[in-house]
Nucleic acid binder design. Structure first.
Lengths: 297, 297
DNA sequence: TAGAATTACGGAGGACGTAAGAATA
DNA sequence: TATTCTTACGTCCTCCGTAATTCTA
């Protein structure tokens, strides 16, 4: 179970082909074939079905571990590299779309006033934000999500990182202006299980998460929207393709849609800050700024 | 970052010696030295201080990743091995001490009545239970802990496993029979931050966890009790060495100590069941039995 | 039958052991 | 000075590429 073998394993399944995986990795087909054969011998089972290339049940099971494993490996390497890094004043901040509106924009406004810290903001899916922070492609991450008021966001294994609550606000849904529910003061989420939704896991609250917090099925969607483009999502919602859940402030700011607050169950939208252990001084400064505890105004 | 190198890395730090690590791993000292050198070259930093052997800051950082990494690697292998395993009727059940009292004993009483499933019960620390389930040394695990009433227990990353709530009960503290607070109907946890506690992370609720849920410091201890022996813990508590937090039923059943319920904050003690994906039929049967949904009575 | 994976085989590099050499308590 | 780690070096084995072979859509 050498990491190299595991990397070619995922490449093969990603490309659904030994040869293209080989060229992507800079190996020959032969080498890839040998890698897979070595893995299969080691584990004593066939992992990949050939022609067409597809995971066997065992391969699928392995695939549930390997990406996390390789990520953690990269995280370890990055974590050590960070130790000897000289503090830069050019910081990379990765955030999910709703985190940008609820926290980052406001924080950066305060930044202009007083510091000489340069920030590059990168808007990504939640998973990609975590990846970026773990692998040191970003100095700081902001992730948004919904939970019961006192709970932390359920984040996957983050290793030795710290998460801090950066902002909380009510949850809302966006819907077309002429939607029958658009005039309501607030809505109950369980009443919306049968509505038509847009599944926009990278930008809005993932439908899967709505099902979990409501302990209910439903929340079906005909359209899936990938990417971090909230305005595009709003356009789809405005055109009547379905609802989407967002923090109230973002929902209100979007054009051509109505924003209605979710009144029940008691849920909040929270943005959490994720940062590696032992942040450098500029990073710590930015953290303080975002948390609003900084003397800089 | 070959897994072999990482394994010798942890062995070296565990044994605080290259030579004893070598013999433990079945290598020569030379090989171990080369392993460490290879890792250090790869990562570009010294990881281990020699004579005496100790982790450098970078080594300590690496050490925060490696055990989890190696565990996940073993979990992947075990997960695949389980696929081709023939269902046994001899099941290994790993549980934390309080889980035994709250769930297992009762469930196994029902087991005697109707099935031909053989169970081996193993009482371990929470971490060891998780390890056993992930690496298939146990077919099923039960872990106890405390949280706010509707929250799940905060378990570390478990990969593709499922957790289910198995039992809930009030939280209590045990104290000497002649303790001034022993006659109380209930106690508030924040009032006990300044008391003397026994830190028994393997058997009772870890003090660290009490601090987290109370959002308070304190809960200091002079005695640390390792191991899964609840009666030993009770003896220490009875002798006045400090308090310990346990589920009410276990606390009540222990000899020579008073059990007082924790009234605030609103916390529950919950036992959760951890099992791998796709359990075999006998395992599923045992799960149903434990959850009380089984027709077997 | 063509496209694609496997097998055979050889060379380069890596890994481990033996043994001699440095370093430190 | 004794113990412990490092370095040198030889051998064996592994890994990858080339090329011939087998498989299957």
């Amino acid at each position: 179970m050498d990491p190299h073998l595991l990397r070619t394993f995922v490449a093969v399944l990603d490309h659904r082909s030994f040869s293209t995986a080989a060229s992507a990795l800079g190996y020959t087909q032969s080498a890839v074939s040998q890698h897979i054969a070595a893995l299969e011998t080691d584990l004593g089972t066939r992992l990949v079905e050939r022609r067409p290339v597809a995971p066997t049940p065992a391969g699928a099971r392995l695939m549930e571990h390997v990406p996390a494993l390789l990520l953690r490996l990269d995280a370890a390497r990055a974590d050590i590299a960070r130790l000897n890094q000289v503090p830069t004043t050019r910081l990379a901040l990765a955030c999910s779309p709703a985190a940008l509106g609820t926290v980052v924009a406001r924080a950066l406004a305060r930044l202009r006033a007083g510091t000489r810290v340069d920030v590059e903001v990168r808007v990504l899916s939640r998973e990609a934000v975590i990846e970026d922070v773990l692998t040191a492609r970003a100095d700081l991450g902001l992730i948004d999500g919904i939970t019961a008021p006192s709970d932390p966001l359920p984040l996957p294994d983050l290793g030795p990182t710290t998460t801090l609550a950066a902002a909380e606000e009510p949850l809302a849904v966006i819907l077309p202006l002429d939607h029958p529910l658009a005039e309501r003061r607030s809505l109950r989420l369980p009443d919306l299980t049968q509505a038509q939704w847009i599944d926009a896991p990278d930008s809005a609250v993932p439908l899967e998460r709505l099902r979990t917090v409501c302990r209910a099925d439903g929340f079906t969607s005909r359209i899936r929207h990938r990417g971090t483009d909230l305005f595009g999502l709003a356009a789809l919602a405005a055109a009547g393709h379905g609802l989407a859940a967002l923090p109230l402030s973002s929902a209100t700011a979007l054009p051509a849609v109505a924003a209605v607050r979710i009144g029940a169950p008691r849920l909040i939208h929270r943005t959490e800050l994720v940062h590696p252990a032992n942040p450098t001084a500029p990073v710590r400064q930015l953290i303080d700024l975002i948390l609003g505890t900084s003397p800089i105004t």
